[in-house]
Design a protein around this nucleic acid. Structure first.
Lengths: 208, 208
DNA sequence: ACCTGAACACCGTTCAAGT
DNA sequence: ACCTGAACACCGTTCAAGT
């Protein structure tokens, strides 16, 4: 007869490679509980291991979260590389849509990737690298669009602009700031913002 | 002789209007410790009051944070209304600069305003209203720029675009994602992104 | 009406001890 | 080498009790 059966009881000693198991459990917990209430203890319990076992694989909570975020940036980079579901629309639209879809499908992960949890303190090298990979993918797309070399100031500025607006849109959408018609699809958000930029910068170019 | 002097000892019973004192202390703690480690207990201790006193003025931690964020949105709205320090530059640049400066001067508050802490659960009516006030101010500026009425679809789309990009830029800057030359001023970020949009949408308009 | 103290169920993290 | 359990210093929150 079990003792107390805390949802995921532990009756044996140890398992094999705990590190990835912890990461998977953290990812699952993240999606269902949000970035704030993701506790190391809850992750450990979900795996069926003692509350302190994680410290033999990750320095602390921040490092586990860092690996999780790094995983997110890698997924984002490959989502950008694939650019599914945009048909044969304009490359800028296709890339924006791919980015936005990733964010909306993984809201908690996305919040973690850009949230205050990781902004403080030293950054995991793996995370920094994965983030660069994401941004690099974005720059490559924009370089192709501008028919310029990656690394030119034009591409860098355009990438900054592009990343800013699509990240901002994703962030606002996830946060629930944007009140849209109930069944608003991802395409609606992106297309509406793109159209908004036309209005905005047409007005910016005509003299006062 | 004091007992243990925990930095801010409490020797008397109660004070006057605790609510604003707690809010001020929370604001101060927020700036120096970040949005995550802002604990109700630390706030109470800073004011010199018992750890549970706050519950007679705020339902819980989330509500206090909500009031703090609402305060932030009100400040943002008036920063947008004032638009100081942009000289007589283009109205879009002036507004963007005002927004961006607010975010960079109050990074922790800004992270709280758009962070995951508030996204979950019910939202404080005061917070919702303050946020609408901020967004309304933005829409008014854009309506003036487009010489259209606030509430037209053009203005709404353009406001969505404008808010997205400037929020995205602020968010990326605060998060430390953007690696800029050491002494990069607020103007640099904004101007560079604005220039980036020109490259981006010029390329978008010429045919393939 | 407002504040306190004890208490409960949680946290992250350290450390000696077990296997 | 890897994992556990006890322990410490923290949390948010509830509740009976004090003023």
């Amino acid at each position: 007869m079990a003792k107390k059966s805390p949802t995921h009881a532990r009756d044996t000693y140890h398992v094999g490679n705990l590190a990835p198991l912890l990461l998977d459990a953290a990812r699952a917990l993240l999606d269902q509980a949000g970035p704030n209430r993701l506790s190391l203890r809850a992750v450990s319990e979900r795996v069926g291991v003692s509350p302190t076992a994680a410290y033999h694989h990750y320095a602390n909570r921040a490092e586990l979260l860092g690996h999780l975020a790094a995983q997110g940036f890698r997924e984002l980079a490959s989502a950008l590389a694939a650019r599914d579901g945009a048909g044969d629309s304009h490359p800028l639209r296709a890339a924006s849509l791919a980015y936005f879809r990733f964010a909306r499908r993984n809201p908690a992960l996305y919040q973690l990737m850009f949230g205050p949890e990781l902004a403080a303190g030293e950054m995991l090298p793996e995370l920094r690298q994965a983030r660069e990979e994401s941004f690099g993918q974005l720059k490559r797309i924009i370089a192709e669009l501008l028919r310029l070399d990656v690394g030119t100031p034009e591409v860098r500025s355009a990438a900054l602009a592009g990343w800013s607006w699509v990240h901002g849109l994703a962030s606002l959408a996830i946060h629930g700031v944007l009140q849209f018609p109930a069944g608003a699809s991802d395409d609606h958000f992106v297309d509406r913002a793109l159209q908004g930029f036309e209005y905005l910068f047409q007005a910016g170019q005509q003299p006062d």
